[in-house]
Nucleic acid binder design. Structure first.
Length: 829
RNA sequence: GGGGAAGUGGCGGAACGGUAGACGCGCUGGCUUCAGGAGCCAGUGUCCGUAAGGGUGUGGGGGUUCAAAUCCCCCCUUCCCCA
């Protein structure tokens, strides 16, 4: 017959579904494992990145199930978002229909992959049963004062027609979704106060040994904690004070100017009093048109304008000019900086361009003192204080803490910890998202929708038009009653950032059917935290921080026991073809459907797991896929061509001590070596490519073993069954089929993982390497377990060694049991 | 500029400080063939050699060690993230 994979895969997928073998319920008496892959956006079809993500996750879930754990392995859809609106406009399909059609199609695809999900638990974030609770969570943030509306300069994507959070502005100030350059707008927006959790988000990274160091570093950098001093400069001749923050209070005597962000609120006040009012206003206008990244880039041209007004340095009363500068960002610190050109490169560039004084206050140790007039770059290293009053002569490393105390004790400022992470801007001026449950009332202000009125359902009878939010025109929906006073009210038409929806979906999987809350504590108490989370590294500073934030907040509400959602994180590498990431724009995509139709899901899964370790990039190779397919064919033939013998052979295993022949002992050893290595490769090393390699070796050895006696058949049967069981998490369909063909009952997917017979691992003979001065001279097969003395004897008798030892003085002999002997001699050997 | 990851055959990739190149792909030769992207056997880092056997070899250069792809220092290159 041969390996006819399509009907085989269909048959087993149907049987698994019929028997519901992957449905799981909590069982407090049993150890659990929560295995989760990042759920997809239902864009229409799976791509190779998904296939890789879900092959890895499914293999782990199936492996752990066979290891006897209660495995929660669910799947869902991150189903709100802009592409649905774009499709609606482009093809005239309602976002709702477009999304649900895609969800059904992608679910079919996942089933065709043979994934072991408990499909009863599927969630869709666009389902009112789900987003009801997203809205409920927003209200909890609101009650706790952690959701608020404020006016701020925000990132605006012209193409998406919406604002973006800071994390969502990437690569040279572009939109994370469409790569359009982001511009600034001053808008009133909803924010979640993630900064309240900044310190904990930072600290508890240390409690995550199961996360890649790389991701933790990225998060630490993103959170960006810095300790410094908040100080204010008086606006000369007024009572107004301008706040700044610095980590380098040791350079306070070197301040020669103050620089304000063009967006700083005080700029307006200053402009009114400045002789250069018109110039300031036009300068500010031109800055607002620049992208954030243009402003911040270290190499970018620094522009500024002198306001003609002065600020007073608190430590020495010195008056310094106030400038407005494009390189000062409103969103970092206070939006104003003290300019110390001698010790900060950006300030230095700016000062030189506009001929501002440069006053060195730290001299490099052991070198000539700096001269502000002639220095060519800022000095930001440690050195000796100068021009710093009573601190002159002190090493700057000591001066920093000393000056901090001195400064604070004089009441000029206070110590402050500053974070780079900003509050999370969550409003989106889009239709296809979870409505923010707020009603505006002229009398009562912004009023939260009562929990009993949730969900605030998205109206479906809307008209999609480019560049606008249909909710603005959905008057029947928009106009409502104020929940407090009953007067006329207007609904918030902004919807929530979809990252809100994905910040808690892993909790919903624990109790997807409950309507009493977002989840039931008894369920999350059992299932949480996620033991293994798998997904792309691109979410390092987005989803993964947001989800941690939500988890901590929910723990503080008493709704969760855990404070971290994901115990172990695996960030899979990209899928590469022809030297570049697979992408539509590069035209190097391979369609998962095509691969599964042509080669089968098992082949696709096997190739993906074999081609490279999960955290590294994977080079797609059509020939590699064929190779994977050939391996499965060989396994199929191996079983098919030995069917009668396998069926008749006793399932009773022969222990090692009953095996006499070398070939039998070698096979037995290979079988248990494979169990040992495959188990460790999957469980400890997370190195699935070598696990597959070990299975190929076992298969090769079984292929060259010709059983004839009853005992040999028993051994062969053990080998085949071990091969099929170990291969099941990787290529489940073919294994089920072969398992059934050999006359076994039930699903191999439900078999326990083979147990290791340690005694079968010990080798009878070993290849020992003889070296002279570290160079391999001979390889000899010796009985295992020789003493070091015996090994040394053996080495001196070996011809290749003897030849090189003539007339040489042996300095020492090093022997590693069962491995090698190295004879060290004087001079060249 | 800062941070991170990585550099090993023709290719994907293996190697607790202990035989470098497992496994697979590709290639070469042979066998077989109800010709299919099939199977089987042998070979395959490189240089010298018919061979036996040597030399050499993990981006480059130093170092530690009986022994280094692996540990330490310097340099080069590529990719990613952040400014």
């Amino acid at each position: 017959m041969g390996y006819d994979f399509l009907p085989i895969e269909k048959k087993w997928q149907e049987r698994w579904a019929r028997e519901g073998i992957f449905n799981v319920e909590k069982d407090p008496g049993k150890e659990k494992f929560y295995c989760l892959e990042m759920f997809p956006y239902p864009s229409g079809a799976l791509h190779m990145g998904h296939l890789r993500n879900y092959s890895i996750g499914d293999m782990l879930a199936r492996f752990l199930m066979m290891r006897g754990l209660k495995v929660l392995h669910p799947m869902g859809y991150d189903a709100f978002g802009l592409p649905a609106e774009n499709a609606a406009i482009k093809y005239g399909i309602h976002p709702n229909k477009w999304t649900w059609d895609n969800i059904e199609h992608m679910t079919e695809q996942l089933k065709r992959m043979g994934c072991s999900y408990d499909w009863r638990r599927r969630v869709e974030t666009c389902n009112p049963d789900y987003y009801r609770w997203t809205q409920w969570l927003f209200l909890q943030f609101h009650h706790k004062g952690l959701a608020s509306r404020k006016k701020a300069p925000v990132n605006w994507c012209e193409s998406c027609g919406t604002v973006l959070a800071n994390e969502q502005v990437i690569n040279d100030g572009r939109c994370w979704r469409c790569a359009t350059p982001v511009v600034k707008k001053n808008l009133e927006q909803w924010f979640l106060h993630i900064t309240d959790y900044a310190q904990e988000l930072l600290d508890s990274l240390d409690d995550l040994p199961g996360w890649p160091e790389k991701v933790k570093i990225m998060q630490r950098n993103w959170i960006g904690r810095s300790e410094g001093v908040r100080l204010s400069f008086a606006l000369y001749g007024t009572d107004i004070r301008i706040e700044t923050f610095t980590t380098r209070i040791d350079t306070i005597f070197g301040v020669t100017f103050l620089a304000l962000s063009p967006e700083h609120p005080i700029v307006e006040y200053i402009a009114e009093r400045s002789p250069a009012r018109a110039e300031i206003e036009s300068f500010v206008a031109s800055c607002m048109a620049q992208t954030a990244r243009e402003q911040a880039a270290a190499g970018a041209e620094k522009e500024g304008i002198d306001t003609g007004l002065l600020a007073v340095n608190p430590v020495n009363g010195q008056r310094v000019p106030i400038w407005i500068a494009n390189y000062v960002l409103m969103e970092y610190g206070t939006g104003a900086i003290m300019g110390v050109p001698a010790h900060d490169q950006r300030d230095f560039d700016f000062a030189r361009k506009y001929s501002i004084d440069v006053i060195p206050v730290i001299n490099p140790p052991g070198e000539a003192p700096l001269d502000g007039a002639t220095m060519t770059e800022a000095f930001d290293g440690d050195g000796i204080q100068c021009n710093s009053g009573i601190f002159d002569g002190m090493p700057s490393s000591e001066a920093l803490p000393a000056m901090k105390d001195w400064f604070v004790s004089h009441g000029w400022g206070e110590k402050e910890v500053n974070f780079r992470i900003r509050d999370w801007l969550i409003s989106r001026q889009r239709y296809w998202g979870a409505p923010i449950p707020i009603i505006y009332c002229d009398r009562c202000g912004a009023v939260p929708v009562p929990e009993s009125d949730l969900p605030v359902e998205l109206p479906l009878d809307i008209e999609m038009k480019p560049g606008s939010n249909p909710l603005e025109y959905a008057l029947e929906w928009k106009n409502t009653r104020c929940p407090v006073c009953g007067g006329p009210g207007v609904r918030e038409t902004d919807t929530m950032d979809t990252f809100i929806c994905s910040s808690w979906y892993f909790l919903r999987f624990a109790s997807p059917w409950t309507d009493k809350g977002p989840f039931e504590k008894a369920d999350t108490d059992y299932w949480m935290a996620v033991d293994q989370y798998i997904g792309g590294i691109e979410h390092a500073c987005l989803h993964l921080i947001y989800a941690r934030f939500f988890t901590k907040f929910l723990a503080d509400l008493g709704l969760l026991e855990v404070r971290e959602p994901f115990t172990n994180l695996l960030t899979q590498g990209m899928v590469i073809k022809d030297g570049a990431k697979m992408s539509k724009s590069r035209g190097n995509v391979v369609d998962p459907d095509e691969i599964i139709t042509r080669w089968g899901a098992d082949t696709a899964r096997l190739f993906i797991l074999f081609a490279s370790p999960p955290d590294k990039d994977l080079d797609w190779s059509d020939q590699g896929v064929e190779g994977a397919h050939r391996f499965l064919q060989r396994v199929y033939r191996l079983v098919e061509s030995h069917l009668d013998g396998l069926r008749e052979a006793s399932a009773e295993k022969l222990p090692m001590e009953h095996l006499r022949e070398k070939k039998d002992r070698d096979l037995k050893r290979r079988i248990h070596y494979t169990i040992d290595r495959v188990t460790r490769d999957i469980e400890e090393e997370k190195q699935f490519n070598t696990a597959v390699a070990r299975l190929m070796e076992l298969s090769n050895d079984l292929g060259s073993y010709s059983p004839s006696s009853e005992g040999e058949w028993r051994l062969f049967r053990e080998g085949v069954e071990v091969l099929l069981t170990l291969l099941t998490p990787i290529a489940p369909h073919i294994c089920e089929e072969l398992w059934e063909m050999t006359g076994n009952e039930g699903f191999v997917s439900e078999r326990p993982w083979p147990s290791l017979d340690e005694s079968a691992l010990a080798p009878d003979r070993v290849t020992v390497v003889f070296q002279v001065n570290g160079k391999v001279r001979e390889q000899v097969e010796l009985p295992a377990g020789m003493t070091l003395d015996e090994m040394q004897q053996a080495v001196l008798e070996a011809d290749a060694v003897k030849r090189r030892l003539a007339d040489k003085e042996i300095v020492r002999v090093i022997a590693v049991p069962d491995k090698l002997v190295n004879v060290v001699v004087k001079g060249q050997a």
